[in-house]
Amino acid sequence: MSARDSILRRLRAAPPGQLVLPPDVPAFYAAVREQAPATDRAARIELFCERMSFWRGEIVRVTPGNWAETLRVLCVTKGVNSLLYGPRGPHAATLEAAGIKGLKPYDRPVDEWKPELFRDTDAGFTSTRGGIAETGTLVVWPDDKEPRLMSLVPPIHFALLDANAICDTPFEAMSAQGWISDKPVAMPSNALFISGPSKTADIQITLAYGAHGPKELVILLLLGEGES
């Protein structure tokens, strides 16, 4: 008998125990929500900024008209000589037009340029699918246009976040993506919640940033024109 069959057979041979009905998680969160004070966009943004700052995420408020220029200036002040971006990504044209020095397209399989990615790439730029106020979190969904390592390997990660896409909780963020629903959409190959730069407290519970991933996370928080 295979290991699989033995394990399943043993599990099925166990007494069934008490019947446990399925938990109703959406109802639980709906009830929590009803008791909590209603949130509006401004409160969500404020809480997101507070929590993300707690994780040491740097918030830079931008508008559709100025974010690329703001990013260019940030790259200069942070001494970024190479900024990785997705040349087929949603913001490629804006980035390419912004005059950012050392713009580097992620345009070939990582296998062909791992050493350069690891040793010689200062920052990465990605879009995001949303944010979560309660936890100070970005929802990042790497794909063929913006691969997985862009938000991980370069020491600085710039992320563009539409303030309108900030949800209250992780549950709501998953629902907003369509992952939790009566008819859920398929999960992407890889999806991430990112809350601040990489960190560790493994040495004498002392917090240190940039354990393995980015040492800095910079959020370009996209607000309406005139809102910032």
């Binding site: 992780p170 999960m187 992407p188 190959s189 890889n190 999806a191 919640f193 990489s198």
Partner: peptide, 10 residues
């Protein structure tokens, strides 16, 4: 309240 990374691999 959450860790830096919550990684969902499908």
């Amino acid at each position: 309240i959450i860790t830096t990374y919550f990684n969902m691999i499908s």
